[in-house]
Amino acid sequence: MYKLKIVPLLLAILFSGWTWSQDIEPTTPEETEIYEPVPPKVIPGKAGAPPSDAIVLFDGTSFKNWISSRDSTDAKWLLNEDGSMTVKDKTGDIQTKQNFGSIQLHIEWKSPAEVQMDGQNRGNSGVFLNGIYEVQVLDNNNNDTYVNGQVGSIYKQHAPLAMASVPSGEWNTYDIIYHAPVFEKGQKIKSGTITVIHNGVLIQDHVEIKGTTPYIGWPKNPPHGQGPLRLQDHGDNSRVSYRNIWVRELE
Rank of each mutant, 00 (worst) to 15 (best):
76 K>C: 11
97 K>I: 06
14 L>G: 09
217 G>E: 13
66 W>L: 00
151 V>T: 04
41 K>M: 03
142 N>E: 13
41 K>P: 01
91 T>N: 02
125 S>H: 01
94 I>T: 09
139 D>G: 03
157 Q>E: 10
237 N>V: 08
178 Y>M: 03
226 Q>K: 09
202 L>Y: 10
87 V>R: 02
241 S>M: 04
151 V>E: 08
223 P>A: 12
137 V>W: 00
219 P>S: 15
92 G>I: 06
163 M>K: 13
237 N>F: 07
161 L>Q: 14
13 I>E: 05
89 D>T: 15
37 P>V: 07
216 I>G: 02
237 N>D: 15
209 I>C: 08
167 P>T: 08
142 N>Y: 11
166 V>G: 05
79 L>N: 14
244 N>C: 03
155 Y>R: 00
249 E>P: 01
115 V>H: 05
180 A>C: 06
181 P>M: 07
67 I>L: 05
65 N>W: 02
203 I>T: 15
96 T>R: 06
135 V>F: 01
129 L>D: 14
199 N>W: 01
157 Q>V: 05
80 N>W: 03
251 E>I: 04
48 G>A: 12
168 S>P: 11
173 T>W: 05
146 Y>I: 01
22 Q>D: 08
89 D>L: 13
236 D>C: 12
34 I>F: 06
181 P>G: 07
72 S>Y: 12
207 V>Y: 10
15 F>D: 08
237 N>W: 13
61 T>N: 04
234 H>F: 08
214 P>Y: 10
36 E>D: 09
241 S>K: 04
56 V>H: 00
185 K>L: 11
197 I>L: 04
215 Y>S: 13
154 I>F: 03
153 S>L: 02
12 A>R: 02
133 Y>D: 00
24 I>W: 05
122 R>M: 13
65 N>Y: 02
135 V>M: 06
143 N>K: 13
40 P>F: 09
169 G>V: 12
107 I>K: 02
211 G>M: 10
110 K>Y: 05
207 V>C: 09
201 V>M: 05
13 I>M: 10
153 S>D: 04
133 Y>F: 09
164 A>P: 15
122 R>E: 05
1 M>N: 06
81 E>G: 01
62 S>I: 08
199 N>C: 02
63 F>S: 06
214 P>K: 09
234 H>C: 12
26 P>Y: 15
243 R>T: 06
57 L>W: 00
71 D>V: 15
208 E>H: 07
67 I>E: 14
7 V>H: 14
159 A>P: 14
158 H>M: 03
81 E>F: 09
97 K>P: 03
143 N>Y: 11
108 E>D: 09
90 K>A: 02
202 L>S: 10
129 L>C: 02
51 P>T: 06
85 M>V: 15
235 G>C: 05
50 P>W: 09
192 G>H: 00
